[in-house]
Design a protein around this nucleic acid. Structure first.
Lengths: 247, 247
DNA sequence: TCGGTAATTTGACCCAGATCAAGGTTTCGG
DNA sequence: CCGAAACCTTGATCTGGGTCAAATTACCGA
């Protein structure tokens, strides 16, 4: 995992080009610089509890986190996976509908909520970037709804691998056309994969095994090799082929 | 359905208090007023096609629409239902990932995209409201993911009825506590309910029948009576009870 | 290096919801 | 008022993924 012992300034910040501050100019950055603070959390820490009104608006500098809803009887569903440059929180005094929990040791760049709302008014390039990122988040949530509503277990697992490979390699467009082998470190356990995909641990494990047996993926439990990305893409079911018998 | 033969001005607009313009003052409204236009569409019209870059940003004044993703092999999933005051579009030149189609005759208040982006910069209370509404839309999409990932067929149908009842009655908070009977006109066919809930037509139909047999709902096919809203809420599975055998 | 705990895998069986197949019912043009 | 098309319901059967149970493997800390 990336170690960031030295707290960065905005200039050398690893998420400078992708986070909510991405579009800010040097001058605007100064205003953010004055209001920001950092927080380091261990893996498995609860960042926001369900029902809580978060005190801060934060961006993930390094690490990762999940956004989870738990029904009263214990059924759990991840509704988002947050990676570096993603944010946590929203303007306004809203109780969170979800729990946010770190998957790994995580460094946050945070703003007290009121201060962030003031910045939104005063720093012109902040709100448009927040809008852009929130629409992307909305697309991701809707994409998840498609996966959960209409895809088979095998397609769900393949879809998750595609999404993680795209996001962590950040090769989005170009990558979808590449056939070159690539590797992916899974930030999720089998149980967490199941929680994300609306499956059980057993089914998640079996489908991973099946994909490996069929040569779609290789590697070990947590370190996946993808010999042919296009093949994986086809298995995910969003692209061309009307797979195993569909009327 | 509400008939709006006379095009309203913003003053008397039925969605004045809830749409993207809700927070604008009288002066700000003038700027919107100058840029807006209206469009009336029949039921079943395609408003935005998948892959298209929408030319306008629109709000629903009256009527309703669905946001749909269709996989290459024909599997379909609704990822949103749009009611009066909801918007269609996003700032920036993005190809739509979804198809948007009217469910009923619909009146839109629309802005040419470039003009809308200029208004976002110039009308101070517009962007914060857009942010607010987009976060709400994100919550709705995540809620749908929970329904699709973890709920049974009966719970899904009950969840949809709860959501439609809340939105159309717009009694959100108070309504959740009411036991008073209320009625709901379903804007969706059985097939559309199935497309929204990740089910088949047959299962959607059977679960509606079962809820009626059990006295949770009454009324006819398209006009549902809800004698006890709290009961329906319990059937939806988000509230307290750990229903039919869950470990 | 060793023991203990947690995570993963694998097998056998079961069931909610899909699929397949008819019948009803509503709507509406003519 | 009639006929057809679309929509809805109901029954019988099948199956993907859940449930239950038992290894096997990976990960640590001492």
């Amino acid at each position: 995992m990336t170690e960031l012992r030295a707290i960065p300034t905005c200039e050398g910040c690893p998420i400078r080009l992708n986070a909510v501050c991405a579009d800010c100019g040097r001058d605007e950055l100064a205003a953010l610089e004055a209001a920001k603070s950092y927080r380091r959390l261990p893996a498995g820490a609860t960042l926001v509890e369900e029902g809580e009104i978060p005190s801060h608006f934060s961006s993930i500098v390094s690490g990762s986190a999940t956004v989870t809803k738990t029904l009263k009887d214990g059924r759990r569903q991840y509704v988002g996976i947050l990676l570096p440059s993603d944010y946590i929180g929203r303007p306004g005094r809203h109780a969170s509908l979800y729990e946010v929990r770190t998957l790994a040791e995580t460094l946050l760049c945070q703003f007290e909520r009121g201060a962030f709302e003031r910045l939104l008014d005063e720093v012109p390039r902040l709100a448009p970037r927040l809008i852009e990122m929130t629409f992307d988040e909305l697309d991701a949530a809707r994409e998840l709804a498609v996966v959960l509503g209409r895809k088979t277990a095998r397609e769900r697992v393949a879809s998750l691998l595609v999404s993680l490979a795209r996001r962590s390699a950040k090769l989005r467009r170009p990558l979808s056309e590449a056939d070159a082998p690539l590797t992916l470190h899974l930030p999720l356990s089998r149980g967490q994969i199941a929680d994300h995909l609306g499956l059980t641990i057993e089914t998640a494990s079996r489908q991973m095994a099946a994909l490996k047996k069929d040569g779609v993926i290789g590697g070990t439990t947590r370190d996946i090799a993808i010999p042919n990305f296009r093949r994986l893409l086809l298995e995910a079911g969003s692209e061309g082929n009307p797979p195993p018998g569909y009327r």
